[in-house]
Write a protein that binds this DNA or RNA. Sequence first.
DNA 1: CCCTGCCATAAGGACAGCTACTGCCATGAT
DNA 2: ATCATGGCAGTAGCTGTCCTTATGGCAGGG
Lengths: 289, 289
Amino acid sequence: MMNLMHWRLLVAVADHGSITAAAERVGMTQSAASQAMAGMEATLGAQLFTREPRKTLPTALGLSVIEQARVMLGALQAIRSTVDEARPMLRGTIRIASFPRVLATFLTPALQRFAQLYPGIEVTTLDVTDNEVLTLLDTGLIDLGVVLNPAPERNATVLGRDLWMAVLPANHALAQRPADACVSLEELLEQPFVLATGGCTANARSLGAAAGLTLRDIRVEVREWNSAFSLVREGVGVTLVPEMALPIQRKGLRVMALKMPLHREFALVGTPNRPPSAAARALLEMLAD
Amino acid sequence: MMNLMHWRLLVAVADHGSITAAAERVGMTQSAASQAMAGMEATLGAQLFTREPRKTLPTALGLSVIEQARVMLGALQAIRSTVDEARPMLRGTIRIASFPRVLATFLTPALQRFAQLYPGIEVTTLDVTDNEVLTLLDTGLIDLGVVLNPAPERNATVLGRDLWMAVLPANHALAQRPADACVSLEELLEQPFVLATGGCTANARSLGAAAGLTLRDIRVEVREWNSAFSLVREGVGVTLVPEMALPIQRKGLRVMALKMPLHREFALVGTPNRPPSAAARALLEMLAD
DNA sequence: CCCTGCCATAAGGACAGCTACTGCCATGAT
DNA sequence: ATCATGGCAGTAGCTGTCCTTATGGCAGGG
């Protein structure tokens, strides 16, 4: 008893003042409607309508019940529209380009949660370098890309940030300062240097250039951060790396913060040429929380 | 599909994070719950939960749907409480004492509507005179009584009012005045008079006494208004009757308003000794609209 | 007085939904 | 590796609800 159809029937009876008309309205036979109404009154334990020869009118209690039944049906209708409106967001694919460390650190947990919230959306990730991300975005081969320190005109969703840290041999002169001492970018870049790029254009050289400084004595230039740490440990020089890239095992190394902290900010941006797809919008909306 | 129980199940799954636990919560087997949830997702055409090995968590769409499902179930719960609260008002009896004309004019239409709104309440009416109403109210033998011009301390529900009208023979001297002329109470009571009471203590004599006047020349005293009209028509005297009591056929009669209008007000009051029953309250509430 | 419109009831049948059981998968412990 | 556990899905069969068809009753209007 008390199927949802019966509540629709109830308000239809109230609207039409007749069981027969209401039955036709909701697509039932007169008999079924009569039984349904009698059943509802029985389960509620109260009479909702008075049956008069020509019409069926609600009782005082019936009026209250009908009013609230409309609320209930309204909520049901709202559910249906919610689902219908959300349908475009349910399926689709998102292609994201990012670079390795960011993917592992910031994106993967978010994407796991996203996959849980939108199981119908397939997310593929590409592991590239930071300037490859930019070209992929411009060509439109991907939907979203992670960029560093995005220009404010692109409305970007910030994923996170990390600090640039100086890494020196433990026995280096600058490394003898107290535990929480800093080192200035200027004095760091004057040292014999191991330039690590991590494959990115944003590295010690570009940071120095932005500050009007140049690296005077680059001993080695390597792509992998870990290679740089080994070289620093062996006393080849000092280096400057993102905090995220720091090794767990720091024996033989001294990690120091910069006097003027420099950070890099990771953000997710859409392609500049076309608006983001419904699926991509869902992801960006989730990240906004 | 989409039974109300299934919506309860839906929110239970969201609350427990597990279909099995939710099934137990709403008193179903795990299998039934699993099928029901699958069925709901099928009919809505969208996935509401992601089934992970240890838990079942809502998708983004699921969260919206669950929220509105709670609204729906809240409305359903509200209906149940409405019915439960109204139950005392559904059955019962009301005994009303009134006097004939009021019953026919004001009370009967109201009681018909009341019977339609509260079919479970039995209303019995007694036809008595106005001072019998008062004694019945005091003894508590009735629930409600119609009284004339009630004292303001009794919170009375006004049913209606009517005017006292002068009735004269068509050829009477005062009756020669223009169509919409009035007659003062003073000059009326000086005429040869037919005193009609309608069985009530409120009549021309009591009205005169209240105004400091006396009837000088009572030719006849009758109980029925209609008897008075016949006597007036034959020229025995003039009379003063409530507007409601006027005959349809007024040939040979002149009906005139009083210069200072006098009215009588009918109101429904409860017994002074005990509070009104739930049924009586329902009636008074309906009349208040 | 019959006819019409509306509601209630009876009997029968169809389908939805529940139960019991089995299988599957992933996790976590031994 | 292996096994135990906990949760979900699938299947077969049955129970019960609810619908349909058909019939009767009741009051009002031509």
